[in-house]
């Protein structure tokens, strides 16, 4: 009772005050130590960010001491693992762009239409089954999609597309699209489903049909959620590793031909780390320069997403 600023109400009656002996100093101590401990835990996530940035930065600076940034960003050949290396990251960016572009060309329209279908057209009980199924599919490891791309889709496409090589960005891109489709569909559906019913009713009351209500009012109202799901999809496509490593191959070629093998930033990283590059070698540093490029791209996408949500999020009750 020593820590109480209040006078004991039963000062004259010792038998009553004896019944209450709260161990306040102990409970205060445990409160304080928990706050400090959990606060320290919270710093781990901040430390992760700092760790990622400084790790990448540290080796990237080392890299740029040996290779000029001008060469890195303007050269058009990538032969980092050869005797007379050239480091034109454009080649890897092009590979990443090509596979992501094919994937997104598929995943964005299909994902959005599926989201509209689930939220607006599917009966409630079907939605209750399909929505968790979608989330389950979003959890399939990408190495499984890599198997699908290399061993099922490519052989199938080779029957249709003439001149399709075993490793190609077409099949990698298509499967990449189906891998990120559940994510885009599920997150967009959340945004579309959350549009208040009163807005739909307001539109119907003007004599709009269902499609006009969906495209004219519901989708614009869900725009910020839809766009951030798409940007997340883009980030996933750019950072996707296993599908492109397995199905698009390891040939750093500057091409937009979807039938031939390309190397993406991520598949280059896998190629180097599988080969056990010694610390301090130029290959090892290249790894981080490429990682940094990838990180900056996803960071920019994230900033774009933040900006968009802040600018376009509509406030509904």
């Amino acid at each position: 009772m020593t820590d109480s600023v209040f006078p004991s109400p039963a000062a004259g009656d010792s038998t009553r005050s004896d019944r209450w002996k709260p161990n306040r100093s102990l409970s205060k101590l445990s409160q304080r130590s928990v706050v400090i401990l959990f606060g320290a835990f919270a710093m781990v996530s901040v430390a992760t960010t700092i760790g990622i940035i400084s790790t990448l930065l540290f080796e990237t600076i080392e890299f740029f001491l040996e290779v000029s940034p001008l060469h890195f960003f303007t050269a058009t050949r990538w032969t980092a693992l050869f005797a007379n290396p050239s480091f034109g990251v454009i080649v890897l960016l092009c590979g990443t762009f090509l596979t992501s572009f094919i994937g997104l060309l598929l995943a964005i329209p299909l994902g959005l239409l599926a989201a509209v279908c689930l939220s607006e057209y599917a009966p409630r009980n079907l939605r209750a089954v399909l929505k968790p199924a979608l989330e389950l599919l979003a959890g399939i490891p990408t190495v499984v999609f890599g198997y699908f791309a290399l061993l099922m889709v490519t052989p199938f496409l080779q029957n249709i597309v003439p001149g399709l090589s075993v490793f190609n960005s077409l099949s990698a891109g298509i499967v990449l699209g189906f891998a990120i489709l559940p994510t885009i569909a599920s997150l967009s559906e959340d945004a579309i489903f959350a549009v208040p019913q009163s807005l739909r009713q307001g539109c119907y009351a003007l004599g709009a049909t269902k499609r006009e209500t969906v495209t004219g009012v519901v989708l614009p109202a869900a725009l910020s959620g839809i766009v951030s799901s798409i940007i997340l999809g883009v980030a996933r496509a750019v950072g996707e590793t296993m599908i492109v490593t397995l199905a698009a191959g390891q040939s750093p070629t500057l091409t937009l031909d979807p039938r031939v093998s390309v190397q993406t930033m991520t598949s280059f990283i896998v190629q180097v780390t599988k080969g056990d590059a010694p610390y301090g070698s130029i290959e090892f540093k290249t790894l981080f320069a490429v990682g940094m490029t990838l990180f900056v791209i996803t960071l920019l996408l994230n900033i774009l997403s933040f900006w968009f949500v802040r600018k376009f999020q509509e406030k509904y009750e």
């Binding site: 992760t48 790790t55 950072g239 990283i269 990838l294 990180f295």
Partner: peptide, 12 residues
């Protein structure tokens, strides 16, 4: 952090 590709975590 949620948008950082998993391969970057690998490098960390």
């Amino acid at each position: 952090l949620a948008a950082v590709p998993s391969i970057i975590y690998g490098m960390l």
